[in-house]
Design a binder for these strands. Structure first.
Length: 518
DNA sequence: AAAAAGGGCTCTT
DNA sequence: GCCCTTTTT
């Protein structure tokens, strides 16, 4: 995963730190590795509640550049065809990371806890690298906690690797990379393009390295020629290496992804390229830039980023978990995909999903028995709140067309059943009722009760993932007070318990507690 | 000799 | 993912 052997190679420039260093800063765990590695302290219990989530990287739906996980998925399907179930599961687990369903469960908790988050439209790595280059007042972040060395290639300013549950980790600062010399290793003559070029040569998820090339040779080639085109032609002339026909083109594309990946810009609420594409970039890529992550209409982009829309199926997340349908209040969310011809609209009621093509949905388009409230919570989102349980038939939407949902769910269900019983992921905490008007703006600066300048905030960034439901066995635990359990048990961690106390707090709050002032 | 590639081990869930 | 061994250059 990430850039082959990059961390080992960069070791001299990596420094051990404690997360305390970032006290008062905005630090972001990227949910893309084994849970326990990046969620500090008691935060793992957050995930116990969500179930045993296997959260890894990203499977790209739209991109032209294949990643290995997709091969795993293909392999898994093949094994399944052959009837080799255990082998198929193995490959599914390699292919499947976070499912939209898991993401949505987590999002509900994050909303409730007022934790900022954004769902990256394509690559979480790119989104985070972009944010790390923004000012704090524009939603910028100070560091990313991850295991994925891709973050460096994407130009993330500060990355914390291998953080353990006591908050110890290894820090790589991009400034340090470009400015300091450590033994043989210096990137002083490198610019961002050369650095990314080196990463791609060494082998990345988009493009395996040329056989015989690793980090060391990639580094010396780039150091020697100081120009990526010259590196490529030098490689071609070298008889030692067998270079695939399309290597140069793939190489260019891979470098372009690390520079210009499509990300969500919270300020304009639109997708944009991490770094704008200039004329020369367009020429270089033959005007084809869809592999960076294709455009989406703004209303859709915002809905994805704010966690309302499943980025893979483009359907609204099912807000009607069992817990909610048993409660007094039911809300229905519909999305208005203006100016997008092929869009489908989804409203979800209980476990029933209806899909209808729509250009515009207004209040008048929707009617429902016993509706107590129809609220336009966002420009792209209509919420209907009813006093009693509402079935699908009781809601009428103009131009509504029922669509066989099997088409969309079939594959996911089949895979999900294979891996774990389906019911398990539908369990939702009874206390997870959504607030009526969720804070939809992921970047809105929250005013916190205590205005301590050392106040830390944590943002969580989710990755879109291939839709395969896997095990999600919830094990609800009873609530307990902050004081009843020490957060940090390690003797070496010089961390005190939080002074301020909240009366009732459950495990999922610990993600917040950890980053609060100590 | 140095770098890369591969094998086996362990960890996690 | 990590570390050690084997293979390649």
């Amino acid at each position: 995963m990430g850039i082959q052997n990059l961390l080992r190679f960069m070791k001299p420039l990596i420094e051990p730190i404690h997360i305390e260093k970032y006290s008062g800063k905005r630090v972001t765990p990227m949910l893309s590795s084994f849970v326990s590695l990046f969620i500090a302290v008691d935060c793992s219990s957050l995930f116990d509640r969500l179930g045993s989530m296997r959260i890894h990287g990203f499977t790209k739906e739209h991109g032209a550049l294949p990643r290995r996980r997709e091969d795993n998925l293909a392999l898994a399907k093949e094994k399944l065809k052959q009837g080799n179930v255990s082998s198929a599961i193995e490959f599914f687990q390699k292919a499947v990371r976070i499912t939209p369903m898991m993401a949505h469960e987590l999002i509900q908790i994050l909303r409730k806890e007022n934790v900022e988050f954004v769902v990256a439209p394509y690559e979480a790595d790119a989104q985070l690298a972009y944010l790390s280059n923004l000012d704090a007042d524009k939603g910028g972040i100070d560091a990313v906690i991850t295991e994925d060395s891709d973050l460096i290639a994407y130009g993330c300013q500060a990355v914390i690797f291998k953080m353990d549950r006591y908050g110890k980790g290894e820090e790589l600062l991009l400034d340090r990379v470009f400015n300091s010399v450590s033994g043989e290793l210096s990137f002083k003559i490198f610019d961002k393009e050369l650095f990314t070029g080196m990463c791609v040569l060494a082998g990345c998820d988009f493009l395996p390295s040329i056989s015989g090339i690793g980090t060391k040779r990639a580094y010396s080639l780039v150091s020697k020629y100081r120009n990526l085109d010259r590196v490529l032609s030098a490689l071609r002339l070298d008889k030692r290496y067998q270079i695939p026909e399309d290597y140069s083109e793939s190489f260019r594309k891979a470098v372009a992804v690390f520079h210009h990946a499509t990300i969500y810009d919270a300020e304009t609420k639109r997708l944009k390229h991490m770094k704008p594409l200039e004329q020369k970039d367009m020429q270089c890529l033959h005007e084809d830039v869809d592999f960076l992550g294709p455009e989406l209409p703004p209303s859709m982009a915002a809905a994805i980023a704010e966690g309302h829309l499943n980025p893979l199926t483009m359907e609204a997340f099912d807000f009607f978990s069992k817990a909610e349908s048993q409660s007094d209040t039911i809300s229905i969310q519909a999305f208005d995909f203006l100016d997008h011809n092929e869009s489908r609209m989804t409203s979800a009621v209980d476990n029933c999903i209806t899909i209808f093509p729509a250009k515009r949905i207004s209040y008048e388009d929707i009617s429902c028995r016993d509706v107590s409230k129809v609220a336009l919570t966002q420009e792209s989102c209509i919420t209907i709140i009813s006093n009693q349980e509402v079935s699908n038939e009781e809601i009428t939407v103009t131009r509504q067309v029922k669509v066989d949902q099997k088409k969309y769910m079939k594959e996911a269900l089949a895979l999900g059943k294979l891996i774990a019983p389906l019911e398990s992921h539908q369990q939702v905490e009874p206390d997870m009722k959504r607030s009526e008007t969720p804070n939809n703006n992921p970047f809105k600066r929250r005013k916190l009760d205590n205005s301590n300048p050392a106040e830390s905030r944590v943002s969580v960034f989710l990755e879109a993932e291939k839709s395969v439901d896997v095990l999600c066995s919830s094990s609800p635990e009873s609530q307990e007070t902050v004081e009843s359990k020490p957060i940090i048990k390690a003797p070496e961690a010089k961390v005190k318990h939080p002074k301020h106390t909240k009366t009732k707090i459950d495990h999922k709050s610990s993600i917040l507690r950890f980053f609060q002032p100590l």
